[in-house]
Simulated scan of single mutants.
Amino acid sequence: MATLRVGRSVARWRVWSTSASVVVTEPDTLAVAREVVDAELSAVDRACSRFRADAELALAERAGRPVTVSPLLAELVGAALAAAERSGGDVDPTLGNDLARLGYDRDIAEVRPDGPAVPPVRRVTSWQDVSLAGRTLTVPPGVRLDLGATAKALTADRCAELVNERLGTGVLVELGGDIATAGPGPAGGWLIHVRDRPADPPATVRVTAGTAMATSSTASRSWRRGGRLLHHVLDPRTGMPSSRVWRSVSVCADRCVIANTHSTAALVRGAGAVTPLARAGVAARLVDNQGQVHVLGGWPS
């Protein structure tokens, strides 16, 4: 997913094995805007990357006791626990060990493309076993958190807000399909191209300033074990990849972290995704495995 606007007011680069884009309405602020976003991305990586042994989150997990964490990590963990509660546990941050067991134990670009089959295991831990009181974090011994479902989206929100606050420009920040906006938008709104994979049906939409969008996918970040195609969105009940009812789900909301919670939960819920999305009153676009598009909640045109 990427904006269609081009020129001096757009910066694009690669980070976290995905795309990053910053679009500003005031071209003279672009260079500093990218610096602000880069600094925030680095801070989040140091706080909670699942692939860094020296990440603050990894140190807290290994402590085996309550620890005081930074305000940033507390916000990131808090967002993950809020998403778990909002989704009824369908978006669960305690799946780090399950992802590693399935082979996603390093940057996706370095994951072995195939290997032995991985049998399911009985999960005994959930998000409700993790405690966060202010900045005091308690992770059960042996549990590894994966904040990927919410940290990228929250980072997009934070980056957009920081750029707008510091530079006074309207801004759109995109991190691997998670989009946040802040400040005044361009005339006619932000123009966004929506398509997860090259073969998927595309859509181009206009959204107003302050709108966020997230796309979650069962087609991206895939690998094989025992010849079976796996992906990174796991069902917390089984610790295995969710069923591929939807290739991708895109959701609009006021904040990207909220949109991402709904889009990720929809993939986990599979055929049961539409009713909760309709009940939540969010605009959504779902692409099924046959490439058919389903929209609801006033999806923008």
Rank of each mutant, 00 (worst) to 15 (best):
Gly7Phe: 00
Gly7Arg: 00
Arg8Asn: 13
Ser9Lys: 14
Val10Gly: 03
Val10Trp: 01
Ala11Cys: 03
Arg12Asn: 10
Arg12Phe: 00
Trp13Tyr: 06
Trp13Leu: 07
Trp13Thr: 12
Trp13His: 11
Trp13Asp: 14
Arg14Val: 14
Arg14His: 11
Val15Arg: 15
Val15Thr: 13
Val15Phe: 12
Val15Ile: 10
Val15Glu: 15
Trp16Cys: 01
Trp16Asp: 06
Ser17Glu: 14
Ser17Val: 12
Ser17Ile: 09
Thr18Arg: 07
Thr18Gln: 07
Thr18Met: 05
Thr18Tyr: 05
Ser19Met: 06
Ser19Ile: 05
Ser19His: 08
Ala20Ile: 09
Ala20Ser: 11
Ala20Asp: 04
Ala20Cys: 13
Ser21Lys: 00
Val22Ser: 01
Val22Pro: 01
Val22Asn: 00
Val23Leu: 12
Val23Pro: 04
Val23Tyr: 07
Val23Glu: 12
Val24Gly: 14
Val24Tyr: 13
Val24Asn: 13
Val24Glu: 12
Val24Cys: 15
Val24Phe: 14
Thr25Arg: 09
Thr25Ile: 09
Pro27Gln: 14
Asp28Tyr: 05
Asp28Ile: 11
Leu30Val: 14
Leu30Glu: 06
Ala31His: 04
Val32Pro: 05
Arg34Trp: 06
Arg34His: 08
Arg34Asp: 09
Arg34Ala: 06
Glu35His: 10
Glu35Pro: 03
Val37Pro: 03
Asp38Pro: 03
Asp38Cys: 08
Ala39Pro: 03
Glu40Trp: 10
Glu40His: 12
Glu40Met: 12
Leu41Arg: 00
Leu41Val: 00
Leu41Cys: 02
Ser42Asn: 08
Ser42Arg: 12
Ala43Trp: 06
Val44Met: 05
Asp45His: 10
Asp45Tyr: 03
Asp45Gln: 09
Asp45Cys: 04
Arg46Met: 07
Arg46Val: 08
Ala47Asn: 08
Cys48Phe: 00
Arg50Lys: 10
Arg50Val: 00
Phe51Trp: 07
Phe51Cys: 06
Arg52Asp: 02
Arg52Val: 01
Arg52Gly: 04
Ala53Thr: 15
Asp54Pro: 01
Asp54His: 03
Ala55Gln: 00
Ala55Phe: 02
Glu56Lys: 02
Glu56Gly: 06
Glu56Ser: 05
Glu56Pro: 12
Leu57Gln: 08
Leu57Cys: 07
